[in-house]
Design a protein around this nucleic acid. Sequence first.
DNA 1: TCACATTTAATTGTTCGCAATTGAATGTCC
DNA 2: GGACATTCAATTGCGAACAATTAAATGTGA
Lengths: 152, 152
Amino acid sequence: MPRKSTTLDPQRLDNQICFAVYSAAHAFNRVYKPLLDRLGLTYPQYLVMLVLWERDDVPVKDIGEKLFLDSGTLTPLLKRLEAAHLVKRTRSREDERQVLIALTPQGHALKEKARAVPQSILAASDCSVSELVAMKDEIVALRDRLNAVIGE
Amino acid sequence: MPRKSTTLDPQRLDNQICFAVYSAAHAFNRVYKPLLDRLGLTYPQYLVMLVLWERDDVPVKDIGEKLFLDSGTLTPLLKRLEAAHLVKRTRSREDERQVLIALTPQGHALKEKARAVPQSILAASDCSVSELVAMKDEIVALRDRLNAVIGE
DNA sequence: TCACATTTAATTGTTCGCAATTGAATGTCC
DNA sequence: GGACATTCAATTGCGAACAATTAAATGTGA
């Protein structure tokens, strides 16, 4: 009575790997939420702040390329960050099509308050740093292969 | 001149496993989209259909537990599936609090049309089955550890 | 039996995420 | 220089995702 193995059936594997990623993303979000609530940020807003803490005064497009997000997502998000006095949005003088995003003093200051976040996540993941780094690299490689297929 | 290595800075975007998972989930979604468009489904709707193709006539809560989603997400999603004539929603006779979700004939029939989806995804991931299985297991284990922390 | 807690879906409001479109600014080619 | 395409952000509309609340059905204990 040959029965197909559930864990090896390639028909199901894609569902499993994709669902694993999908559900892990939500789990991460739920762990981040209480931490980010204290900073007044959502997770996507936190990602934008991470980008800006590395380099300031960049056009929306640059942020979008780093985070794989488009203006339909970023424009309202950045307006909310502006309303929270964390960033300032100004049209570029050299190229009026671009909107440059700069941190306010409050935006810069928030970096210090956010220092504790990564450790808390590390603790919650209950995993060694080297293991996490290895996993991260694998997932990034998979993501990049998927993204390479999209533009075809 | 002690300088923190940027490759180890936990506050850097590229070092965050969460962003890897987050962006990989979006990449998967973008690969799935053209395939699922042909079925008239979104990815979360496809997940619900996968659950129902395995077992039918289940309460909303059961679907939510399998997919880690609550009624705030599922109720409108299931109403859209009902509007598309893929499922039927009926109050349970034994327990009037529950709403049972059953597939319509069209809902059952869609399973056949969805057969081609997994191969396409596997091809796009461009990865050996054994590698994918290993990754999936690691990600699920990480997700479960994260979910375990949440209820504390 | 009756008060009370629990379970279950539904609802409301906010924020993402993306496709498609718009409109202004810039680049290119003749 | 002028027609044309391209680039960039903003907008619109739809579908998640989730917190918080509501309301009905059910379970429990005195």
